[in-house]
Design a protein around this nucleic acid. Structure first.
Lengths: 109, 109
DNA sequence: GCTGTATTTAACTTTTTAGTTATTTAACTA
DNA sequence: TAGTTAAATAACTAAAAAGTTAAATACAGC
């Protein structure tokens, strides 16, 4: 199960890790900060972060003792590409998506 | 890890199961037929199918002794919805997606 | 160089996953 | 009804995942 896509999907298949990603959407932050909302030991969070990092979904920097995490640029690209391959199912979402695109274009103006 | 989204992502995080889905894109087929390409026992495939079914990604019908499988309508919707939530990453794909939408619209004419 | 803070690593436990072979169920066929 | 085919279930094993506590590492500040 060691291919990149499986690694990412596996990493995403855990609510804790998705919650971590959701938090990181708000911006770079420390491991301690990330751990705060969870009833779980710090090492457990550290492990989750390692899984996310190995999957290429986050990166970790360095700032004194802190190792701030952030979302990896384009980390979900292959997942999105795989999804796109499922046109039949995908098409059901096109309306919504088109609306979204439209809004985005207008925002950019 | 029992929420619907986690169940689906977990189901997708296995190359064998994704291969099964890919085969099912071509159309409904029997368990035996699905198992053929794999170097794996039939019960193993049967289990994979159960995982996919529990996740709501496929459905199984009945035709004599055969239990033909097919893709579940809209089975990937929540996964797609979750993905959409990641606008920042998503935006990197917008160009491609827009092209795709454009093509689709033109096809529909 | 000692102390505190942030984080990781080690060692261990429990549960889940992915596979196996052997057995069972269900339905068709002669 | 006996035999065949399609698939699922049972019972088991090995490996991976997700958590724990305790110890180690890395750096900052006095």
């Amino acid at each position: 199960m060691s291919d990149a896509l499986s690694l990412k999907l596996q990493a995403l298949a855990c609510p804790t890790r998705r919650a971590i990603l959701a938090r990181l959407k708000l911006g770079e932050t420390s491991v301690n900060e990330l751990a705060r909302p969870f009833e779980m030991s710090l090492p457990a969070i550290s492990k989750h972060l390692k899984v996310l990092q190995t999957a290429g979904l986050i990166t970790q920097g360095r700032n004194a003792q802190s190792r701030p995490c952030k979302l990896a640029e384009g980390g979900l690209n292959d997942v999105a590409t795989w999804m796109q391959d499922y046109h039949q199912m995908w098409e059901q979402r096109l309306d919504r998506l088109e609306t979204y695109l439209q809004n985005l274009k207008e925002t950019e103006k």
